[in-house]
């Protein structure tokens, strides 16, 4: 005890105490973060009759694993999953192609007005999406794209400001020697972009891919306003309709099973690709 008190007077002793304190606080915070997940899974595993017990069962006595398969089948998650992954994949392809392509122009080629266009692009990051919402909707309505996936996927092919910025910042760190020797060999700028820049950009492309996946997968607003047919809904929109109907309140266990299923893809992606998330946030400040 005396040794302990004496150690507190030294800087390293204090440091140890602070570390212990930090771990305690962080663990408490982690519990707070995990409780909702615990509650979700606990509810998802309950028998119909046990959902509304007072006081609640924290750990279901008779876990009903079929809730997951029931939720999947009854809520037609297969259709919504297909729609969602179709949209996510298309948006990912569009975003990766357009961002990496456009960024090369901003990073390497000279043209009058280039920097003005770049600043304009960055300025749109601050623009509230609401301002362009109504005309964009009306535009898609006029050309008959409402209730198709096109309003959700086509804009991705026109470059997203964040990702063009991220790609450009990466390109300018690549030494020019590689391109110059290719140029001497007679390669066109497009060839250089495709066969030299892109292969070197693996990690940045991965970063963009994971953020696009998560952003599109979790997007609610756009599918909500552009898709009206039940069979065209995404997982996010389909879930939101469940929460509104009184029927689903009685089946909270199935609903929570569906929610559990719905968060698996981003969680798996996050666990598998953590370093890309961290890199993306540190470089661009995207908050996911």
């Amino acid at each position: 005890m005396q040794a302990f008190l004496r150690s507190l007077r030294t800087r390293s002793g204090q440091q140890r105490l602070i570390d212990v304190f930090s771990v305690i606080v962080l663990s408490m915070g982690a519990v707070v973060i995990l409780i909702p997940f615990f509650w979700m899974i606990s509810t998802a595993l309950k028998q119909n009759g046990d959902v509304f017990l007072v006081p609640p069962q924290w750990i279901p006595e008779n876990p009903r694993w079929e809730n997951f398969s029931d939720a999947y089948a009854q809520l037609k998650l297969d259709i919504y999953a297909f729609n969602t992954f179709f949209i996510v994949t298309t948006v990912m392809i569009g975003t990766l192609l357009s961002a990496s392509f456009a960024a090369y122009g901003f990073a390497r080629l000279q043209a009058p007005g280039r920097d003005t266009i770049f600043m304009l692009l960055l300025a749109t990051l601050m623009l509230p999406g609401a301002v362009t919402l109504v005309p964009t909707y009306l535009m898609f309505n006029t050309i008959g794209w409402i209730n198709t996936f096109l309003p959700l996927t086509v804009p991705a092919f026109f470059g997203s400001a964040y990702f063009v910025f991220l790609m450009r910042q990466f390109y300018i760190t690549i030494p020019r020697e590689l391109e110059e020797s290719a140029m001497i060999d007679g390669a066109s700028v497009y060839r250089i972009w495709w066969s030299i820049m892109l292969p070197l950009s693996g990690p940045v492309l991965a970063t963009i891919a994971v953020f696009t996946f998560v952003g599109t997968y979790n997007d609610f607003f756009n599918p909500l306003i552009y898709l009206s047919d039940e069979s065209k809904r995404t997982i996010a929109v389909a879930l939101s309709y469940l929460s509104g109907s009184p029927r689903s309140v009685a089946k909270m266990n199935l609903l929570m099973a569906a929610v559990t299923i719905s968060i698996i893809p981003p969680i798996v992606l996050f666990i598998g690709a953590q370093r890309y998330f961290v890199r993306g946030i540190v470089t661009t400040g995207i908050k996911g």
């Binding site: 997982i235 609903l255 981003p266 996911g288």
Partner: peptide
């Protein structure tokens, strides 16, 4: 990772989870 995790799954599913968590009678 744990503290960043909620950001990755922010969406309708989690919103519905909150709705259930804040349920007046049966919420956690």
């Amino acid at each position: 990772s744990m503290y960043y995790l909620p950001t990755v799954i922010s969406g309708v599913g989690v919103a519905m989870l909150w709705k259930w968590i804040f349920n007046g009678k049966h919420g956690i």
